[in-house]
Amino acid sequence: MALTRITSPHTHRALGTGQVMRTVVMATLPGLAVLTYFFGVGTLHNVLLASAVCMGFEAAVMAVRGRPVLFYLRDCSALVTGVLLGLALPPYCPWWLVVVGSFCAIVLAKQLYGGMGFNPFNPAMVAYVILLISFPLQMSQWAAPSDIGGHTPGVLEALKQIWAGSSIDGYTAATPLDTVKQNSSLMLDSVYLQDPVLAAGSFAGAGWEWVNLAFLAGGAYLLYRRIFTWHAPVSMLAALALMAIIFYDGGSSNSGGSVLFHLFSGATMLGAFFIVTDPVSSAVSNRGRLIYGASIGVLIYVIRIWGNYPDAIAFAVLLMNFAAPFIDYYTVPRTYGHKKSQRATKKADL
């Protein structure tokens, strides 16, 4: 009898890569729902369009590379990239922004480096940064949250804006981070009172605090499902909070706002649970992830307060992606039976 000979182990845990990715996508749903509630269908449209285009690019590259297309699409990594990119882009941005972003993410940042598992940088963040520095105007126009009486466009209106390019100036508003950044040398209290978005919120601006809470919930679900370990996100949030405490000077807008403000505005929670935890481009060991996450937290605060851009998740993550191999080199765990941990190489490289 011819029996198949298969290498051990013969049993596997049921969790597969595709399933991991799908779980991640599921965990973004509360955040997406809240975003849609506050800002209208713009983000939903972004997410759908970006996912579709990303999958399309992925399939095209796979076909060009002569690999089985369906097999690779099934791992859903392109879907995750698309969803994250869509969430990060401002609602009602023109359609070509999404397409260019998807191209940058999948083709430039992922497939040019060899495809899934080989990309040194987070594809969605690469795309976001490229778009941000290339099209600063389009990328900085956030819709106003519905809470403050902002006008939330209907589906048709939204489609018209996105595909026909009609102006959206009518209902954009500065994000809380923008507001704080632009109003330097004022007392925070007066800034909060002046700005409708901040004024309407309870601790980090109308809408934004709920969006971040929703992403936090999604992240907690992923932690519960043990999709990733707590190290990177927790250390990132802790570092950010610590920085905010250290530099909080009791109320001037130069200090950049309170701890709660930093933790629950901008893309903090999205970054902490969906970007920083991207395994491909982060450090490998748990100790390494602690360092990696903490460094991102520090960088976020630094760039938010002293940099040119209001939010900083993407830049901080990309900078630490650079450093991930370096962190790995110094955080090799001690192997069983060895006195001390080996550096990644015994001999210096040539």
Partner: peptide
């Protein structure tokens, strides 16, 4: 069939010898 490694680190967590 094997897919690409996504460096998720689950293997490192499972390793009883603390290897990578």
């Amino acid at each position: 069939p094997a897919q690409a490694c996504i460096r998720c680190g689950m293997c490192a967590e499972a390793c009883p010898a603390d290897l990578l």
